[in-house]
């Protein structure tokens, strides 16, 4: 772990966090957290409840300002200086733990709204659906397997389908980096595996950071794993490696 702390690392990173700390009323949610993700990398984050996983996503996406530390996007943009909408428009997409699609809009409308660009009030008022946008929506639809539910309210979808729709909305934003919070929560085994396949497919084009508790899911992702504990990185490496780490077994796996 000393690697990230030695000021700047040589290789290019899509996300670079160094010495990030956040405290709420004296409780250190993040304690000098350092972590970096290479372009095109998929990374799984695990850790017990309260380890700081969600807070980490909050500081990356501009929802929470860190007390100290550096967060760089693509080695140049200091994410701590922007708010949620700005960070989103720079190319960081975020999926929440609870599926948060817009339930009273149709699947189509949800996706249409997520498409990159046209974020100003005026552009939204004069928005027209072009062929290119329609194509993009079709492309996403086939990835998330919701083609036949296109004009149904998102609220009528099953839990798993809502999760996928939300992932589809992330794709619409065309982000470079996707932050995904417990995508497999509440999914059936079959849906979980399908989601893992989807993520592997996505990792060809995007960098992903996936927070998850489901070990089978992480195994299926087959990627580097970071273990968070009490707001900082406890271990990092392949899943097999991490699983055999004595500290990790004590604080997380062993329970």
């Amino acid at each position: 772990m000393s690697l990230a702390k030695t000021k700047h690392i040589e290789q290019p990173t899509v996300l670079y966090m160094d010495g990030v700390s956040v405290s709420f009323d004296g409780f250190k949610a993040l304690n000098s957290l350092s972590l970096f993700i290479e372009p095109g990398e998929m990374r799984a984050i695990i850790g017990p409840n309260g380890a700081g996983k969600t807070t980490m996503m909050d500081v990356i996406t501009g929802k929470t300002r860190p007390d100290e530390g550096t967060i760089l996007f693509n080695d140049e943009l200091d994410l701590t200086r922007y708010d949620e909408a700005q960070v989103a428009n720079m190319g960081v997409g975020r999926k929440f733990q609870k599926p948060s699609v817009i339930e009273s809009l149709t699947v189509f409308e949800n996706l249409e709204m997520s498409l990159k660009g046209g974020r100003s009030v005026w552009q939204a008022l004069t928005h027209k659906l072009t062929g290119a946008k329609q194509d993009k929506i079709d492309e996403i639809l086939s990835m998330i397997d919701l083609k036949d539910r296109l004009y149904e309210d998102a609220g009528s979808l099953s839990h798993g389908q809502k999760q996928w729709l939300e992932i589809g909305m992330l794709l619409g934003q065309e982000p470079e980096l996707l932050l995904i919070d417990e995508p497999a929560a509440g999914m059936t085994d079959e849906e979980t595996m399908k989601t893992a396949e989807l993520f592997k497919e996505l990792s060809k084009k995007h960098s992903l950071m996936v927070v998850e508790h489901d070990m089978d899911f992480i195994e299926a992702l087959d990627c580097r794993v970071t273990v968070l504990h009490e707001g900082s990185v406890l271990a990092e490496g392949s899943l097999a490696n991490v699983k055999n780490n004595q500290q990790v077994i004590e604080v997380y796996l062993g329970r």
């Binding site: 996406t61 929802k63 708010d83 949620e84 909408a85 989103a88 428009n89 997409g93 975020r94 929440f96 948060s100 699609v101 817009i102 339930e103 009273s104 809009l105 709204m113 997520s114 974020r119 100003s120 939204a124 909305m169 934003q173």
Partner: peptide, 12 residues
């Protein structure tokens, strides 16, 4: 319906 979703989609 979901103000934070709108924000994280990039809408001000």
């Amino acid at each position: 319906d979901s103000e934070s979703r709108a924000r994280f989609l990039g809408y001000r």
